[in-house]
Amino acid sequence: MAGEITDNRGRGEARWSWPSIHPEGRKYGLIVAAISLVFALLAWETAAWPLGFLTLGVLAFFRDPQRVVPQGERYVVSPADGLITLIQKVEPPRELVLDDGTGHPGLPAGPVTRVSIFMSVFDVHINRSPIGGTVSRVVYIPGKFMNADLDKASEENERQHILVERSDGTRIGFTQIAGLVARRIVPFVKPGDILAAGQRVGLIRFGSRVDVYLPAGTEPRVLLGQKVIAGETVLADLGDQPHIEGVSQ
């Protein structure tokens, strides 16, 4: 299905398939599987069975399913699978605002809407670009490993900022944040790379969060408590400021 064009009028073809396992996770799955096999050969079934199930869990964590990315100049798609846990007006991170000496502008100063997506260990952890454009900035910052669901995790946890700029000058910044269990942010991109909307940009191991900073004048189309899907859920329409209410049921 990769690369196929589909639409809302029935064009294209859809079929279920097993998701692939990202190469970053295959080595961990093989290590746990090998240990499980050793215990099984030694007839230590008490340890072999749990390790066998752990192997399946590790492979599931690193699954990398295909996604159908909505195409539209105004769409900002979700960079992560997970739960919308925070929607707040904040100042964007200073690392995405300050002049970094490269000649590429950062985000404008001033309050913007931040949408925070919490990823549990059961979510897909491959992150994707919210818009198409050129990667103008990647900034890694070491830090703590507090619960990624906390507001202050945006400023105190280990994190990586990514800034993507479109050809028309629109810039979207987003931040991968490590959590209590997550201990490594793995980037797939570097400054100068050209991305399509929904293209894979990195992953965070074992539970974490991604913050998206929408441009001024743009409000999200998602609600607190909503589940979103990386590369598929439209977080916002650029320049649109809808007021949407939801009901939990």
Rank of each mutant, 00 (worst) to 15 (best):
T85Q: 04
S20D: 08
V97A: 04
L163R: 06
V201Y: 06
D240H: 13
W49H: 08
A196S: 10
P215S: 02
S78V: 04
R63N: 05
D240T: 05
G217D: 07
T102C: 07
Q199F: 03
F62R: 11
T218K: 02
I204A: 06
A182E: 01
R63P: 02
A153T: 00
V201L: 11
P108L: 00
Q88L: 10
T170S: 04
S129D: 03
I117W: 10
P108E: 05
D168S: 10
T6M: 12
R205F: 05
G225K: 08
G202I: 00
V77K: 12
T113A: 04
D193F: 06
A14Y: 12
G101N: 04
R128T: 00
G207P: 01
Q199I: 01
G106I: 12
F62A: 01
E156F: 10
K190L: 06
G106C: 10
R200P: 00
G110M: 12
L37H: 02
A236P: 06
L150K: 14
V77W: 09
M119N: 11
P50M: 06
N147F: 13
F206P: 03
T233Y: 13
L238I: 14
A33S: 14
E45R: 14
A40T: 11
I126V: 07
R200F: 03
V201H: 09
L30C: 06
Q71A: 07
A109D: 10
M1E: 09
A43E: 13
E155N: 02
H125I: 03
I131D: 08
S167N: 13
R74V: 05
G12D: 01
V76E: 10
E219F: 14
W18L: 13
D168N: 12
I31H: 07
N127E: 06
I229C: 08
L86K: 11
G169H: 11
V228K: 01
N157V: 10
A47P: 02
P142R: 15
F122W: 10
I35M: 10
K27L: 14
S116V: 03
A34S: 12
L42S: 08
A40H: 12
L37T: 09
A40K: 03
T113E: 15
V139M: 10
A14P: 01
G132P: 06
T218D: 00
S167R: 15
P220H: 11
K144W: 09
A148F: 02
I204M: 14
L42I: 05
R94V: 01
S17G: 14
I244E: 01
S248M: 13
V181P: 04
E73I: 05
S154I: 02
P191F: 12
S129T: 10
V201D: 03
P65D: 13
R74N: 13
F145D: 02
E73K: 13
D211Y: 01
V181F: 12
E165V: 09
A47S: 13
S208N: 08
S167Y: 11
A230H: 02
A14I: 09
Y213M: 11
H22K: 09
V121W: 00
A47D: 04
Q176A: 11
